[in-house]
């Protein structure tokens, strides 16, 4: 009887621990996205099961404009969001404290007008998509963000292999060509920051750098390359990324 009781207790313990770890791994991550073709990677990742592959349970939350999405990010009703880079940078300059962890789709101007007028592309650059997160996260933030970014890079890889995925996720009928790149690319962001004249004399010189969390992207890529060392897409992305770490040493990878 005693033995049976102990065994039962043990089984209950095992089951309970399983439930607990399942809950921890499956806590809901709310990812906002703009109804914009440049945010297609977020939706492709869901469609292809990339979030689940990374152990994330993601709920996509659609926004019709970046400002309302950024407001939700600030209020904490979403954990991250894929919104327009121009609006994101303005919010950062306005003191919202957001950080950029990955890139997305950047519209590319085509046609005779674009060739004659640089401002056409400049406007489109600002409507490119970046992935933003709030100022601070809780424990385990880095791991979750690395998984999220890995899922988006996987989605990018899928879109390269199956271009029809992007067409299926495009929004509107008369869209410019969208160039996708999940790399946050600090120097591209800095150019836009300067173009928008967002830098204030009261900001420290590394103000923008402190809001671009490139290391997440590099860690995600490292992880993907470790699992698929011969993958040409991961190799291509890895070859051009240069990351300045900004997390360590207290968050150093184990």
């Amino acid at each position: 009887m005693n033995r049976l009781f102990v065994l039962t207790l043990f089984m209950v313990g095992v089951l309970l621990s399983g439930v607990k770890s399942g809950e921890a791994g499956g806590s809901l991550f709310r990812l906002g996205y703009l109804e914009h073709t440049g945010a297609a990677l977020c939706r492709i990742a869901q469609l292809k099961g990339e979030y689940a592959q990374e152990g994330l349970k993601v709920e996509l939350v659609r926004f019709s404009d970046s400002r309302s999405g950024l407001a939700a990010l600030e209020q904490g009703t979403i954990h991250a969001g894929a919104f327009e880079v121009g609006e994101g940078l303005k919010a950062i300059a306005g003191g919202k404290g957001f950080r950029i962890i990955a890139g997305g789709g950047i519209p590319t101007a085509t046609g005779p007008l674009a060739e004659l007028d640089d401002r056409v592309q400049q406007r489109l650059d600002l409507s490119g998509i970046v992935i933003l997160i709030p100022a601070t996260g809780g424990a385990g933030e880095k791991e979750t963000l690395t998984r999220l970014t890995a899922a988006l890079v996987r989605a990018y890889r899928s879109s390269r292999a199956e271009p029809e995925l992007l067409r299926s996720k495009s929004v509107g009928t008369d869209q410019p060509i969208i160039h996708f790149d999940p790399y946050p690319d600090y120097y591209r962001l800095e150019r836009l920051w300067k173009r928008l004249d967002l830098h204030s004399s009261t900001f420290p010189p590394d103000f923008l750098a402190n809001h671009v969390y490139e290391e997440i992207y590099c860690d995600a890529l490292d992880r993907l390359l470790d699992s698929a060392p011969d993958d040409n897409v991961y190799k291509e992305l890895s070859g051009k990324a240069v990351c300045v770490p900004d997390c360590c040493p207290k968050n150093k990878k184990q």
């Binding site: 190799k235 890895s238 070859g239 051009k240 240069v242």
Partner: peptide
């Protein structure tokens, strides 16, 4: 062109 012609993988 190190961005295109080869892969540079960064480690810790």
């Amino acid at each position: 062109d190190w961005k295109k012609d080869l892969t540079i993988k960064e480690f810790d």
